[in-house]
Design a protein around this nucleic acid. Structure first.
Length: 607
RNA sequence: GGUCCUGUGGAGCAGUCGGAGUGCUCGCCGCCCUGUCAAGGCGGAGGUCGCGGGUUCAAGUCCCGUCAGGACCGCCA
């Protein structure tokens, strides 16, 4: 090693020791006759003092990479720096070697300045020298270790699955990779290892996990990148409760060790239907109350057309209360209309209750009958001084989601969110199906999710109400993981495909290899996948997953550091077979379903 | 695909009602300085106000377009 000690490790007990340190110049304070340098390495910072080598030390600049040798000394009386763990000592340098110089910095390596995202990412290697970004990346490593420990203690096997593969049957767009050896054919990057981990269960591995890179070609969010990581888990011979217990063990260990938070007792479970009814969300933030109230029954018979229209069509009217919301200015109340319009609604109906009298006021109040107004506050649990927001729609879920979004916004604007709180829950009993666009049904989760025992024999009779053994774990309003019990019986799988309108031919074409495997004694199995970037983001207290990814991409899918993606040369293009044209399918069956569903067709080799 | 916010020396910002590229903090270059720790003092360099067009006697400022970054919706386990 070039160094004998870590800079951040030195303490008063080390006084008298001669040490050699190596690191970067975090700051230089040049007093002419004496020069102080804060020397930073991965372990922290220590002050080094120059009374020799003055000419060389004078030339030091920020982020020069240096090696120094000197004696650790107790600092003179009154010169301790209580801000630093090493603040009682300093290193009196006798030898200075400049290992490499640094050009003037495009980005200050300074914890006190926060640069824009594009410049940070372009110079991410400088950004990572700062304590905050460095800590986030190190935390991620510890999180992975903690999860691995929990899983290995339980006899899980870590297995890598391919990243050049077929598309998995999940909803998102695939990233595609041209195949030189078979021009005109394409690999897909996996959206998740879903099918492979199920095959591993058939393979008798029984307990699998993988920290798996996944790819989805969809638009970005603060918590979505096109490539992301899942802690992917699958288990055989288990029930939903077993997976949930494991999930709690992992989350419990992570939060105990990395957030200093003890999760006491089992994490509460809420059914999907309850979550939608009470919070208007399938990932409710339980750090605050502000629950929704359904008013479909209460307001039946109203003449206010917006509400009556929804009620008469068999829809939903509901409300959510903003505590103290009556004190909002006209401008703030108008702001809610803009907020609602930004979400694609026509507006957000509201009634405010006078802080003194409790009298309901506002544009909607004029449209409601005396009787409806009189009991309104009690019906929604509002007090004088509160504001009541309404949503109505023929589609129940649409109105609930509007109120759910309003609930989150209310908590934010009214300062109801306890930023130090951790609120976990499981959302269970998710629906199996939802209506597909023109007609028919689509799987909410994926088509291998098992109906729960109650619906196993009858899901066809009421697909809109059928429930799955599917569960999501939610933390502070973020979905951090989700999974399901899988179908392992061929007859049940066949019936689910039938309902989804997937013909045997299609099923065989898309995932015949899985169905084939399921002929040979597949065990009952279930699993879960944690969104590892989100988990680490929450643990790090970051507001974007970019903070816990070493080299993230910007919103446009661009990497400012490498400038990827880039055009390819004509030669690369020809070799990759990007433009190879598949021969016209000859089989009648293939001709009936053009596009992705067809059997890989032979291609013409044009050059 | 849509709505909104941002874009000003290397970094972070301010810039009023349209009136000279004006200002602040940091950094950079030079000098001074023996106890600082986001050191201090003196001096200096550094700008196509993202880009293009328009309105105007006059545009960093107003309008249109465009590019880039960000937040959200659509989309997406």
């Amino acid at each position: 090693m070039i160094r004998t000690h870590d800079a951040g490790s030195l303490r008063a007990a080390d006084a008298g020791t001669t040490v050699t340190l190596a690191g970067w110049v975090a700051r230089r304070r040049d007093h002419g006759g004496v020069i102080f340098v804060d020397l930073r390495d991965a372990s922290g910072v220590v002050q080094v003092v120059f009374r020799e080598e003055m000419e060389l030390a004078h030339a030091l600049r920020n982020e020069f990479c240096v090696k120094v040798t000197g004696v650790v000394e107790r600092r003179p009386e009154g010169n301790d720096n209580p801000e630093l763990p090493t603040g009682q000592v300093e290193v009196n340098v006798s030898v200075l070697e400049i290992l490499s110089e640094a050009a003037p910095l495009p980005l200050p390596v300074d914890d006190h300045v926060d640069a824009g995202d594009d410049i940070r990412l372009k110079y991410r290697y400088l950004d990572l020298r700062r304590s905050g970004p460095a800590r986030a990346i190190r935390l991620r490593s510890r999180a992975s270790q903690i999860a691995r420990t929990v899983l290995h203690d339980r006899e899980f096997v870590e297995i890598e699955t391919p990243t050049l593969t077929r598309s998995t049957p999940e909803g998102a767009r695939d990233f595609l990779v041209p195949v030189r050896l078979q021009p005109g054919t394409w690999y897909a990057l996996p959206q998740s290892p879903q099918l492979f981990k199920q095959l591993l269960m058939v393979g008798g591995m029984e307990r699998y996990y993988q920290i798996a890179r996944c790819y989805r070609d969809e638009d970005f969010r603060a918590d979505r990148q096109p490539e992301f990581t899942q802690l992917d888990i699958e288990m055989s011979f288990v029930t939903q409760d077993d997976v949930i217990e494991l999930g709690e063990a992992i989350v419990g260990a992570l939060w105990r060790e990395l957030a200093g938070h003890e999760i006491t007792g089992p994490i509460p479970r809420i059914t999907w239907l309850d979550a939608m009814a009470r919070y208007g969300s399938d990932k409710p933030d339980l750090r605050y109350g502000v629950e929704l109230t359904e008013l479909t029954g209460y307001l039946r018979g109203t003449e206010f057309r917006v509400f009556a229209g929804a009620i008469d069509a068999g829809g939903y009217v509901g409300a959510v209360v903003m505590p103290g919301g009556a004190a909002q200015t006209r401008k703030e109340l108008d702001g809610w209309q803009d907020w609602a319009k930004a979400r694609g609604a026509r507006g957000l109906a509201y009634v405010v209750l006078d802080a003194e009298t409790g009298e309901p006021r506002g544009p909607v109040a004029k449209n409601l009958s005396e009787a409806h107004l009189a009991g309104l506050a009690d019906a929604v649990g509002a007090k004088p001084g509160d504001a009541i927001f309404f949503a109505a729609a023929t589609d129940r879920r649409e109105a609930q989601e509007m109120l759910g979004a309003a609930r989150v916004e209310i908590a934010r604007r009214a300062g109801l969110v306890d930023e130090d709180a951790w609120a976990f829950c499981w959302v269970v009993d998710a629906p199996m199906f939802e209506p597909a666009d023109p007609t028919g049904w689509t799987a909410v989760h994926h088509p291998f999710t098992s109906p729960n025992s109650e619906w196993l024999d009858s899901f066809e009779q009421a697909p809109d109400r059928a429930l799955a053994y599917a569960y999501d774990i939610v933390c502070n309003g973020n979905e951090i993981g989700g999974g399901s019990v899988r179908i392992h019986r061929a007859d049940v799988q066949r019936r689910v495909f039938d309902l989804l309108g997937i013909t045997p031919e299609e099923a065989s074409d898309k995932f015949g290899f899985l169905l084939e495997a399921f002929k040979y004694g597949p065990p009952p199995h279930a699993g879960i996948a944690f969104g590892w970037d989100r988990v680490c983001m929450l643990l790090a207290g970051a507001d974007s997953i970019r903070e816990v990814i070493a080299f993230p991409k910007t919103r446009g899918g661009y990497d400012p550091l490498t400038s990827a993606p880039t055009p390819i040369t004509p030669q690369q293009r020809a070799e990759a077979g990007v433009d190879a044209k598949p021969k016209a399918p000859t089989q009648a069956a293939a001709a009936e379903k053009p596009g992705t569903a067809g059997v890989a067709a032979p291609v013409e080799h044009s050059n």
